[in-house]
Amino acid sequence: MIENLPVDISSLPQMETLEYQKHPKRIITFFLINRTIGALFLLIPVIILYFTNNPFIAAIGFGLWILYLILVIINIFKEYSRRGYALRQHDIVYRKGWIFFSSIVIPFGRIQHTELSEGPLNRMFKLTSLKIYTAGGSTSDLTIPGLEHEEAQRLRQFITEKSANA
């Protein structure tokens, strides 16, 4: 028999007043390089415009690109103190973003599998990414981008145990 007691909303655990674990400080540099490389791809259409005799539109595009890059850089610094994860008894919470803030909760019972990954840039900074997969498709998956290797492994171990028992 499944017990199904009514839940008092005010007594529920609150996710907004949690202690969040921050990433190591060097993730700022990591993001600066990573995001700049990403932004460089956006420059391709501008370059094409410039060489196809549209220097005026290309100039506007370049201006917009600089603006975008500045916002991205400010965002990286501003969000550092907000970006982080919190573990609770039944779920993991991850939050990020300054201009676009978001926070996602995945109950351990819904986790399908986890993955540790290190790209070339990751390795340069000795950072490890932890990916958490659910059955909810790619938008529902969670990537925690830069953790100490030790920490990532411990976190993964913890999650795997929890999700097996949930």
Partner: peptide, 23 residues
């Protein structure tokens, strides 16, 4: 629910509004 999320931009934050997402 597979996972749940909240998202908001800085303008919404000032107005204390947010988006709710269920996966």
């Amino acid at each position: 629910a597979q996972s749940l999320a909240i998202s908001q931009n800085i303008f919404l934050k000032r107005r204390k509004l947010a988006h709710f997402i269920i996966h």
